[in-house]
Simulated assay, not measured.
Amino acid sequence: MKVMRSSTAKVVVVFVGEGLMTPFLRDYMTQNITGIQWLASEALVTASVFSGREYYPYMGGTIGFGIRKGHIPTLGDFLQSVNPKRYPDNVLVHELWESLYGCSPFPSSVTQMPSCSGQESLLEQHSAYMNTSSPSVAYNVYKAVYAIAHSLHNLILCQPGRGPFQNNSCAQSNNIHPWQLQHYLQEVNFQIGGEVVDFDAKGDSVPYYDIINWQRGTEGNIEFVNVGLFDGTKAVGQKLLIQEDRIMWAGHQSEASCTHCVFTFIRCQLLMFCRLRWS
């Protein structure tokens, strides 16, 4: 912090999660250090714990990669249909009900909670559970499930004598080994939500990232605004798209001081991150 206070450098790259950033930021705010343009790592840039209005003077203008959000059709309808009566053997649903309602549809001496029907209605106060507006992590799980489904589909369609394994054999559909499924998983190629899902020789998927900018909301809090994207399917030189006119920089400035050098530095750092992660 002493260096950050005295240095003429005003762009700081931070690779840290919210857990380690919290105590640092507490002291940073106490010392009233401002004017730093933060370039945040993926783990930090969508950390909602820092969205309160008290953080904006110190963290406003932060920019970095975030896991790309995507739309999961009918997810909200499905969440509203979940209850312990419908899924009586699902331990996670039981735990969810105990957390939401403080009761158990299947009371026992272990839970020591009052009983309930297990068909209670999900109410507005359960917004954390029902919020599907930013399912970035869930969207990747969604794509992963489809990748497994496509792999199983291709595995089952294998014709004996034309298979990919020893002596052109196929996997047995009633006795599938993980390495057999992995073979098909590495060969999947499909589209979902307009995105290509496939894997390279190293097992990495095609990278998609939103570029997130921390801007001030109507109530003074921090909102995570999408100002660009990284699309690994594009040609070299076209993978990174940043909408410069939408960026709010540190100090609530629509233009960065020394705009060209700061923006060029940030663009280079983002591209370097992509090369290190995906090359």
Results as ranks from 00 to 15, higher is better:
residue 126 H to S: 10
residue 146 Y to G: 00
residue 165 F to P: 00
residue 126 H to P: 02
residue 122 L to K: 13
residue 165 F to Q: 01
residue 180 Q to I: 00
residue 102 G to L: 05
residue 142 Y to P: 04
residue 134 S to K: 06
residue 135 P to G: 05
residue 157 L to M: 09
residue 131 N to I: 02
residue 169 S to C: 11
residue 104 S to H: 11
residue 172 Q to C: 08
residue 158 C to S: 06
residue 175 N to H: 15
residue 122 L to C: 09
residue 129 Y to V: 03
residue 121 S to M: 01
residue 113 M to P: 04
residue 163 G to I: 05
residue 178 P to Y: 12
residue 105 P to D: 02
residue 111 T to D: 14
residue 158 C to F: 07
residue 125 Q to P: 09
residue 176 I to P: 05
residue 169 S to Y: 09
residue 128 A to H: 10
residue 168 N to F: 09
residue 158 C to T: 00
residue 135 P to M: 09
residue 112 Q to E: 14
residue 158 C to N: 08
residue 147 A to I: 00
residue 125 Q to A: 09
residue 157 L to E: 13
residue 176 I to C: 07
residue 153 H to I: 06
residue 153 H to R: 10
residue 101 Y to M: 15
residue 119 Q to Y: 05
residue 120 E to M: 11
residue 114 P to T: 08
residue 151 S to Q: 07
residue 111 T to K: 07
residue 162 R to G: 13
residue 118 G to K: 09
residue 150 H to I: 05
residue 123 L to H: 15
residue 165 F to T: 03
residue 105 P to K: 06
residue 135 P to Q: 09
residue 103 C to M: 03
residue 174 N to Y: 09
residue 128 A to T: 14
residue 167 N to Y: 03
residue 159 Q to E: 15
residue 122 L to Y: 08
residue 169 S to P: 14
residue 138 A to I: 07
residue 160 P to A: 02
residue 157 L to G: 07
residue 157 L to C: 15
residue 145 V to Q: 00
residue 126 H to E: 08
residue 155 L to C: 04
residue 177 H to Y: 15
residue 114 P to C: 04
residue 125 Q to C: 05
residue 161 G to E: 04
residue 174 N to T: 15
residue 118 G to W: 13
residue 170 C to P: 01
residue 144 A to N: 15
residue 102 G to T: 06
residue 180 Q to K: 00
residue 137 V to G: 03
residue 103 C to I: 03
residue 105 P to M: 02
residue 136 S to F: 14
residue 114 P to L: 06
residue 154 N to L: 05
residue 165 F to N: 02
residue 168 N to C: 07
residue 130 M to Y: 05
residue 171 A to E: 10
residue 142 Y to W: 08
residue 121 S to N: 04
residue 124 E to N: 10
residue 135 P to L: 08
residue 166 Q to K: 10
residue 125 Q to S: 14
residue 112 Q to N: 15
residue 121 S to D: 06
residue 175 N to E: 09
residue 175 N to D: 13
residue 112 Q to C: 09
residue 166 Q to L: 11
residue 145 V to L: 04
residue 140 N to W: 08
residue 103 C to P: 09
residue 115 S to K: 14
residue 163 G to M: 10
residue 153 H to M: 07
residue 151 S to D: 03
residue 161 G to I: 06
residue 111 T to Q: 08
residue 175 N to F: 11
residue 132 T to L: 13
residue 113 M to V: 04
residue 126 H to Y: 08
residue 149 A to L: 01
residue 150 H to W: 04
residue 181 L to H: 10
residue 136 S to H: 13
residue 127 S to N: 08
residue 133 S to R: 12
residue 107 P to A: 14
residue 166 Q to P: 01
residue 137 V to M: 11
residue 111 T to H: 13
residue 174 N to D: 15
residue 181 L to N: 07
residue 153 H to C: 06
